[in-house]
Amino acid sequence: MSVPAGYYLILAAALFSIGAVGVLIRRSVIVMFMCVELMLNSVNLTLVTFARINASLDGQVLAFFVIVVAAAEVTVGLALIVNLFRLRASTDADQVGALRA
């Protein structure tokens, strides 16, 4: 009645694969970007599990850096998305109505 560390690794692998599939099948750029975030999170789960296995905090420090990188990436990525949609709205009249909703 206890949990071997491998279970956490399996869960992380599952989340990573789901995220990767999501990037491939979704068309919405924002959702694709969310899927990448899911992948980074599953890597963090792996790192934290390995930190526990190895009895060292290094894995947690690595996960901490990954969070910083993900935050920076999201900032730039969403800025690009906003600009992209703004541009599309101003160049493509058909889309303006949809975007106003």
Binding site: T46, F50, V69
Partner: peptide, 16 residues
């Protein structure tokens, strides 16, 4: 970002 996730997973496994 997608490829970074793969690289990072690899790094995590090496760390593990």
């Amino acid at each position: 970002a997608f490829s970074s996730a793969f690289l990072l997973y690899g790094i995590a496994l090496v760390y593990g």
